[in-house]
């Protein structure tokens, strides 16, 4: 199983890196990437994206919708009412919505009207899951339905997810979106536990396995997005940012992500244009990885067995010696 998986991803990764070479015209040393054990990253170049202004739906959004249109099974009817809080989130009748994240829409394009050094300009910002380096959404999932793959993709297994939305609560951008009335919770205790399945971008892991690139990247007519070996993508992002005297988003946010936005306009300015709403995340710079602060406590937990055993060894040895001394005293009587 693993053998199989890693073989597949190596192959796809080589193809991808070849694709990157073709797209960027930059020669990439393939070995460097192999050392990264197949870790991928993506780049979104806001200087290239024009929001597909001429199209009704941006190409990336359309491609993504098309690829994933049959992913979610038909929700049961009626959807069981959860107890006691009766929230039901049903997007199945609004699958067409494409201007925010929904269970049926994993990417959307934000239009930012910014005034940059006195000059008005429009920046289009495709938004989706950042595939963070240490994603709380995955590590903290109580069922491990959400999981970070060795290639860096953060993937929710819709067969294991109960739809409790914990991942959404701990994601700084509240990316995962819930569809009620589908999933494993229906077969357990639907009224009391779980409430559907969470959906979000999965970096097209299945396509990656087949050696293809993610749908949005393939579809973009302006080649505003790239995917490739992590280190290379990071390098390209830095080069491009330097060249346009611009900015990078995603490198430090939430403790680091595998999505690098490059923009000629600062992300503070872009963020000011965003009215944070459900399914429409803001773009605050340097959002911390909140769990990072718990790491010291976790380190203490990992050290606890050693400390406990050491204390027992010391105290046990002392107690035995005392007992022995007592015994000898008695024998000498």
């Amino acid at each position: 199983m693993r053998e199989h998986r890693s073989k597949m991803s190596r192959r796809s990764f080589l193809k991808i890196s070849a694709g990157t070479v073709a797209l960027t015209g930059v020669g990439l040393p393939k070995r460097a990437a192999a050392r990264e054990k197949g870790q991928l990253a993506t780049l979104i170049d806001l200087s290239l994206c024009d929001g597909c202004a001429a199209l009704e739906t941006p190409a990336c959004v359309f491609a993504c919708k098309t690829i994933n249109q049959d992913k979610i099974p038909e929700p049961v009817d009626p959807i069981p009412e959860p107890w006691p809080r009766k929230t039901i989130e049903d997007w199945s009748k609004k699958q067409h919505v494409s201007d925010r994240l929904t269970p049926y829409n994993f990417i959307y394009v934000h239009k930012a009207l910014v005034v940059d050094s006195g000059r008005e300009r429009i920046v289009y910002v495709p938004r989706r899951c950042m595939h963070c380096d240490n994603p709380a959404c995955a590590t903290i999932c109580p069922f491990s339905a959400n999981n970070k793959r060795p290639n860096g993709a953060v993937v929710i297994d819709q067969g294991l997810c109960f739809g409790g939305a914990k991942c959404k609560d701990v994601c700084p951008w509240e990316i995962p979106q819930r569809q009620s009335g589908v999933g494993i919770y229906l077969h357990v205790l639907p009224g009391f536990m779980g409430n559907g399945v969470m959906y979000k971008c999965d970096l097209c892991v299945d396509r990656l396995k087949e050696g293809k690139t993610p749908g949005c990247i393939e579809a973009c007519p302006r080649q505003a997005m790239l995917i490739g070996p992590r280190r290379e993508i990071e390098k390209i992002a830095e080069e491009r940012a330097r060249a346009m005297n611009g900015f990078i988003y995603g490198k430090n946010e939430n403790g680091g992500t595998s999505t690098f936005y490059v923009s000629p306009v600062s992300f503070e300015l872009i963020n000011e244009t965003i009215q944070k709403k459900p399914g429409q995340p803001d773009m605050k710079t340097d959002v911390p990885r909140r769990m990072a602060k718990t790491d010291k406590f976790g380190d203490a937990v990992l050290a606890a067995p050693v400390l406990g055993i050491a204390a027992a060894g010391a105290l046990g040895w002392y107690a035995r010696r005392k007992e022995q001394a007592k015994k000898e005293e008695k024998d000498n009587d």
Partner: peptide, 25 residues
């Protein structure tokens, strides 16, 4: 999670202590 970790530190250390200490004796 902070609280879970803090309690897990005590819980784990004491459980290991218990096993080894009474094992030795």
């Amino acid at each position: 999670l902070y609280l879970h970790y803090a309690a897990a530190f005590v819980f784990t250390a004491v459980a290991m202590f218990h096993l080894v200490y009474h094992g030795i004796l």
